[in-house]
């Protein structure tokens, strides 16, 4: 258990644009160095930074450099034609030498250890997947990437990935020549001990969620890649849980479940599968908004906001405190 301070707004880090590279049609990659020359804070695959692009203009971009090299950070930015200005600003205003204020890396989409991985990327959603692949490869894990995009020329890092890992494991699908990714074919057959990490547009992720219904609960991890914010389905930030009956408050860290955190302070919760499948750890919510990640509660139960399965579900993004009937 950790006792906590409230979640602090991430500190600002001043950086300088070290390199700008046009990596695909409509996509630039920025390499950032700290203005003070020091290393960036440590981060893991799936992390993102907030990039301050001007007054009230903050955008989040996934990191696609190597976590082992903290001297630089790299992000990939897609130019969105009708954007409210974030990507346009990056594409038009930034050049080598520009100053850019960013946050420390944060991770809403962390990579859990697994024997096998299936990575699914749509368009610019490839960025957080790149460090994930490196980590999986370094750990000697079995993995496959399916990477879809409108056309090959718009697909950032596609050639580099194929060159580095080979076509067997990196399956590139350009819609204009090969059609859309056959998500049903890819996901129709659940695999044991395999985690699925998917990042891309909302429509793709909804389809992924549908086709993953037969997978073991907890196997699917998604990050919605929308221009403005990281949407629901991705919150792994720490939050507090207050135990209404027994008293006390416990912080649930990023790499921990509510069940684990409350057990550490001696609360008794009956549980069995600890994977969101059996429903045994059902717990009543006194206040706060949950993000449901189980595969067993009905939609009515989930929408009621009154109960949750503490083995997998967490606090919703923006909810820093859940009060539970424990």
């Amino acid at each position: 258990m950790t006792t906590t301070a409230p979640v602090m707004a991430p500190a600002i880090i001043d950086t300088t644009v070290h390199a700008v590279e046009h990596v695909a049609e409509g996509v630039v990659s920025l390499v950032l160095r700290r203005a003070d020359g020091r290393d960036f804070p440590a981060w893991g695959p799936g992390a993102h930074i907030d990039v301050h692009l001007g007054e009230d203009l903050v955008r989040q971009y996934s990191l696609c450099s190597a976590p082992s090299d903290l001297s630089t950070l790299r992000i990939g930015v897609l130019r969105v034609p009708d954007s409210r200005g974030g990507s346009k600003h990056v594409h038009q205003e930034l050049a080598v030498g520009s100053s850019l204020a960013v946050s420390a890396p944060r991770n809403n989409f962390p990579l859990a250890d697994s024997r096998k991985y299936l990575f699914l990327a749509g368009g610019i959603g490839i960025t957080p997947i790149i460090p994930m692949i490196e980590a999986a490869e370094a750990a000697g894990r079995e993995w496959t990437l399916h990477y879809g995009g409108r056309s090959r020329s718009t697909m950032a890092f596609a050639d580099a990935l194929v060159a580095r890992y080979g076509e067997e494991r990196v399956r590139i699908l350009a819609e204009d020549t090969e059609g859309r990714m056959d998500l049903q074919g890819i996901l129709g057959m659940p695999r044991a001990h395999m985690q699925v990490y998917a990042c891309g547009p909302g429509g793709m992720l909804s389809a992924v969620e549908d086709f993953c219904m037969g997978w073991p609960p907890g196997a699917l991890h998604t990050e919605r890649f929308v221009a403005d914010a990281l949407g629901a389905g991705a919150n792994s930030e720490p939050f507090e849980v207050e135990l209404a009956r027994t008293g006390g408050t416990v912080t649930v860290d990023t790499n921990q479940t509510i069940l684990e955190a409350v057990e550490q302070v001696g609360a008794r919760v009956l549980s069995s599968c600890r994977a969101g499948l059996c429903g045994t750890c059902e717990t009543r919510i006194v206040s706060g908004e949950p993000e449901h990640r189980d595969a067993v509660l009905t939609r009515e139960d989930k929408e009621s906001g009154e109960i949750m399965l503490v083995c997998v579900s967490r606090a919703a993004a923006g909810c820093s405190r859940l009060v539970l009937d424990l």
Binding site: G279, E282, T298, D301, I307
Partner: peptide, 11 residues
């Protein structure tokens, strides 16, 4: 399984 969990679930 999906049919069964639709019928037998905590709710």
């Amino acid at each position: 399984r999906r049919a069964l969990t639709g019928v037998i679930n905590p709710g």
